[in-house]
């Protein structure tokens, strides 16, 4: 038995599939569909103009790298937050050279709501304003990844301005961005 591809049938299937993909892509850009990212294992930059919300936690965690070495990072968690002027960029080494992949909110005045966000960061720069701040809260009570007896910072409410974070990963949350811009290229600027 032999066979061949019938190209009209091919188009009949391809067009609605691509249309569905386009609808999802459009929905994401409009903020109707939450996007989930798991860009793991690569240092990336995350920045925002302003970030405010509830349920902030900061505690140390240890992550293990592929070669067995352990790295100390900070885990930043927030239960719910609104982000203004979000930007995330990572450099990717490809066979064609070093590329910058950048995701950013097109409209800096419109907030992007997030929930259940966890960021593991190596350094953080920001102007902060905490409400109901607790220093030296037990890390275990702030999150399941924290170990009992570790130092932690907790706050019921927080507002952070001009955030600059070097992060290993951002995970476990939902993010809705209206007008998400995705750019990849050699001359795309990083977030900071």
């Amino acid at each position: 038995m032999r066979g061949s591809v019938r190209w009209r049938r091919f188009a009949l299937f391809l067009v609605p599939s691509l249309a569905a993909l386009a609808v999802l892509g459009f929905g994401m850009a409009e903020g109707a569909v939450p996007v989930s990212f798991a860009l793991s294992g690569r240092q990336m930059q995350v920045s925002a103009d302003r970030l405010s919300g509830r349920g902030f936690g900061l505690y140390p965690v240890v992550v293990r790298s592929a070669n067995g070495r352990r790295h100390q990072v900070m885990m930043l968690t927030m239960r719910t937050a609104e982000i203004y002027g979000l930007c995330q960029s990572a450099t990717v080494d490809t066979p064609l050279g070093r590329y910058v992949l950048r995701l950013s909110a097109a409209d800096r005045a419109r907030p992007a709501p997030v929930s259940g966000l966890g960021i593991s960061a190596t350094d953080v720069k920001a102007d902060v304003d905490f409400g109901s701040l607790v220093l030296n809260e037990d890390a275990r009570t702030l999150g399941s990844a924290g170990s009992r007896g570790d130092y932690g910072v907790g706050a019921a409410e927080f507002t952070v301005k001009r955030v600059r974070v070097h992060a290993w990963m951002v995970a476990g949350g939902t993010l809705r961005v209206k007008g998400l811009k995705v750019a990849i290229g050699r001359d795309v600027p990083t977030c900071f």
Partner: peptide, 13 residues
């Protein structure tokens, strides 16, 4: 691929 760290990557992973 080419990840420097193996970390818990959440739902997306």
């Amino acid at each position: 691929v080419r990840a420097r760290l193996v970390v818990h990557t959440g739902v997306g992973g």
